[in-house]
Design a binder for these strands. Structure first.
Length: 311
DNA sequence: TTCCAGGAGGTCT
DNA sequence: AGACCTCCTGGA
């Protein structure tokens, strides 16, 4: 991919970038830790780092990023090696989808950290975006490492081990609400599974086998899309929709099609789908969009939410 | 200005 | 099919 990249003093400049719009990327429902500073200027925390993105037309500058981090983390994070023109070409064979594709022309699906997304999307269930962000920030402040950027303090998302120290009561106080027990339970299962993998867990053979069998995020990430979708739902607090979000935004499973209220509205709006069950909409969409379902979902979601469509 | 009802990017039992 | 916690918003 001919990216026109220049490495300067702790910043990276990309010229002539295509299919990239930082507002659309940050506001299509896939991430919670990016904050708008100004138009086309966002600051975010990911993979234990703070970065700032400024977009001026087709020039994107990433501040607080070394060449090494850009190559090791941010290229993959922003999915810069994928040709989104090709995806849009294929999806635009569907005449109905064209409007949404043109509207969210600069959307990209971020590659985020699986554990962070497991917890973040458990928090998202039956919740609004401002409250989700606030709760996640509270958890980061309480358990994550401090990061400094431009004299301001930011907090990394806690590691599995850091968050394993949290109690249900503490998570409740941070805004976790009725989901707090799911967060603590899920974190502990993942943490104990990792201890078991390192043979550092003193438990019965049966318990260790169950942990390794069901709660290994690495293993789940390597499953087929359909197995992955099922496996994630073994965790408490993860149902079909949350599972789709996690696999799509952190495990590169692009046949996922998260159906929330906005996507449901979009499907009714565009395809005249009846007011039917979420699962029927999911099956219908995945048959229609196949391996590109996840991308289609992002365009539909962004269009529906920005336009505030009813049906 | 203050107050209350309704709703928010589902999942569990 | 109902309950669930909490914050935010809009209208009285």
């Amino acid at each position: 991919m001919g990216l026109d990249i220049h490495y300067l003093d702790n910043k990276v400049v990309i010229n002539n970038i295509k299919n990239f719009n930082i507002k659309q990327i940050c506001e299509c429902g896939q991430c919670f830790r990016w904050k708008k500073e100004k138009e086309n200027n966002y600051i975010g925390v990911a993979y234990g780092r703070v970065i700032e993105v400024l977009q001026e037309d087709d020039t994107v500058t990433i501040y607080n990023a070394s060449e090494e981090d850009f190559k090791n983390i941010w290229i993959k994070y922003f999915d810069l090696e994928r040709d989104y023109s090709k995806i849009k070409d294929i999806l635009s064979q569907d005449e109905i989808l064209k409007v949404a594709l043109e509207y969210g022309y600069g959307i990209r699906i971020l590659n985020q950290d699986p554990f962070e997304l497991v917890i973040s999307y458990i928090i998202s269930a039956r919740n609004s975006i401002p409250v989700i962000s606030k709760t996640i920030n509270n958890i980061c402040e309480a358990y994550g490492k401090k990061l400094d950027y431009k004299g301001k303090i930011y907090y990394a998302f806690p590691t599995i081990e850091e968050l394993s120290k949290a109690s249900v009561e503490e998570i409740k106080n941070l805004g976790g609400s009725f989901r707090s027990k799911y967060i603590v339970d899920t974190t502990n299962k993942i943490y104990m599974c990792n201890l078991a993998k390192e043979k550092k867990l003193d438990e019965s053979k049966e318990i260790i086998e169950e942990l390794l069998e069901k709660y290994d995020l690495e293993k789940i990430k390597n499953m087929s899309d359909n197995d992955c979708h099922k496996a994630l739902q073994e965790f408490k607090g993860i149902g079909a929709k949350v599972s789709d979000c996690i696999m799509l935004f952190s495990m590169q499973k692009y046949s996922a099609f998260p159906v929330d209220i906005w996507v449901k509205r979009a499907m009714i709006h565009f395809y005249g789908a009846n007011d039917t069950s979420l699962n029927k909409i999911r099956v219908f969409a995945r048959e229609k969009f196949g391996e590109l379902s996840g991308f289609a979902q992002q365009y539909l979601f962004y269009y529906a939410r920005e336009k505030g469509i009813k049906f």
